[in-house]
Each structure stands twice: as C-alpha cells, then as structure tokens.
C-alpha cells in the first residue's frame, strides 16, 4: 500500500471475501494440484518456446537428412532394403523415439535438482495445499506435454519426407511419449534421490542414453547384433518403443505377443517410476 492508503484498503487485501473457504481451496487442490504444477511449468517453458521449437524442427531435419537420405542411399544401394522397406522408412520411427528419449535426459535430471536443491522450486508449492505426490506427477506431465509437441513435429516431418507410409503412422506420437515416460519416470525418481550436485547425470547420458541410442535396434535390426549384446535392446525402453513405432509407421511385422510385451514393459516402467518417484518426493520434501 502506498503512503496514502488506509487500514480499510489493507483490510480488504487481507480479507476481501472473494476467496472461498479453506476447505473448498483444499478440495480443489486435492483434485487438481498436479495440473496447477503443469500450468506453472508451461508458463515457465514459454520463455524458451522459440528456442525449443527451433530445436524440435531442426533436430529431425538433421537426422532425417544425414541418416535417412545420406546413409540411406548407401544402405539401399547395398542391401536393397531393410526389413522390407527403404532405409529412411526403417530408421525414421526409430529416430523419432530416440530423439525424444534423448531429450528426457535434459528435462528430468537437472530441473529436478533445481526443484529440490538449487532454486528450491518445489518448496513453494509444497507450502500450499498441493502435495509432494502432485508435484512429482506435475513435473513429469509438463515434460510429457512438451514431448507430444516434439514427437508431433517429428511425425509431420516423417510424413513430408515420405517416410511414414501407413495410415496409422500418427500412433508413433503416443508411442514416443509413452517411451519417454518409461525412461523419464524412473530417471526422475533417481534424480530426486540424489543429494549432491548431480554429476551422475553425465554418466546417465554417456552410459545409458547413448548405448540405448546406438544398440537398441535404432540403426539396424536388433537381430543383426551378436546375441550376447541383444539384451541391451531387450531391457531398453527405446527398443520396445521403436518396434511399436515401426509397426505404426510402416506396418513392421511382429507377433502379437511381442507387441503386447512392448506395451506392457513400457507401461510398467512408466507406472513403476511414477509410484517410486511420488514416494521419493514425499519423503524428501517432508524431511
């Protein structure tokens, strides 16, 4: 209040009568607290919208040009086709899934550390009716909304590059987001459990994300690899997501039971990560 303001003004500031009773506020927060975190996350992301969008367009263009058209020409000339389709069609959905998963490595590591430690951003909402569990879910969902856009743009470019012949190819977008959640939710839980400065994230980048990118059936069918290395694919969400995305974009043939395994593995990893993450958030914020 400025100097001339009166006690009456301040009285209205402290109790205007426009605020619902506390039990109503608490009820709304119990139901929607996770979404309020997403709203704040989206507003924060707006500041970076232009650079993120640029990244989302340029990355697929680079990958599709270099690997699909460049390397693909060579592969097609030598092998004729891979999995019965041109190399660009084979590698396209895998790149879609892989690049989204690589972005997870940036979105659910350092920002989680900022929430608990560097900027203590989680402690703001923690003092409101919102709960730590809702904060954990909100953080994950905000990032997943970003990935819907990122995967959507990639899919459009696949279509433009003539690399997604199937009418169901749009299903690769939800597949990519599910894969991101399958890797992201456990990673978020791990990040939330770290007390120090997060040097482990570089380790995750080099020894988990990169091998998944290179050895999980992205650039060549997993069956080409020696059996002793194929397990990298089996345990990797990227392989399960990539195989599903290939079915969507060009109708890659796989037995039904294997398709079911892909979905179950991805859903279980995402769900398990969320459940563990919620507990870690609750324990850490409440201690």
């Amino acid at each position: 209040m400025t100097e001339g303001s009166t006690i009456a003004d301040l009285g209205r500031l402290a109790a205007s009568g426009r605020v619902p009773p506390p039990e109503v506020m608490a009820r709304r927060a119990r139901r929607w607290g996770w979404w309020f975190f997403v709203e704040a996350w989206l507003l924060g992301a707006k500041a970076w919208a232009v650079s993120i969008l640029l990244y989302m367009v340029v990355t697929p263009l680079l990958y599709l040009t270099a690997l699909g058209l460049g390397l693909g020409t060579l592969v097609d000339r030598g092998a004729g086709s891979v999995d019965g389709v041109p190399y660009l069609v084979f590698v396209g959905p895998a790149l879609l899934v892989s690049t989204v998963v690589m972005s997870v490595g940036g979105e659910l590591t350092y920002p989680v550390m900022a929430g608990f430690k560097w900027q203590r951003l989680y402690y703001g909402p923690h003092a409101t009716p919102a709960t730590p569990e809702q904060i954990a879910v909100g953080q994950l969902l905000g990032v997943m909304i970003r990935f819907v856009v990122q995967a959507g743009i990639f899919w459009l470019l696949l279509v433009l590059f003539d690399a997604a012949p199937s009418g169901w190819s749009w299903l690769s977008v939800p597949v990519a987001v599910l894969t991101a959640a399958a890797f992201g939710a456990p990673l978020q839980a791990f990040a939330a459990s770290l007390e120090d400065e997060g040097y482990q994230f570089a380790f995750v980048q080099r020894f988990i994300i990169m091998p998944m990118f290179l050895f999980a059936g992205t650039f060549f069918p997993l069956s080409v690899m020696p059996v002793t290395l194929q397990w990298i694919g089996w345990v990797s969400p990227v392989w399960h997501g990539t195989q599903l995305a290939r079915q969507a974009t060009y109708g890659a043939a796989e037995p039904l039971w294997l398709t079911a395994v892909h979905v179950v593995v991805l859903a279980a990893m995402a769900l398990g990560g969320i459940l563990v993450g919620r507990r870690i958030y609750a324990r850490r914020l409440g201690s």
Partner: peptide, 9 residues
C-alpha cells in the same frame, strides 16, 4: 498468480 493457482483460485 501461479502460486495462487495451487489454492485452486
């Protein structure tokens, strides 16, 4: 504004 949202306002 965003802090107020957590109260469902």
């Amino acid at each position: 504004i965003m802090y107020g949202r957590y109260f469902g306002l």
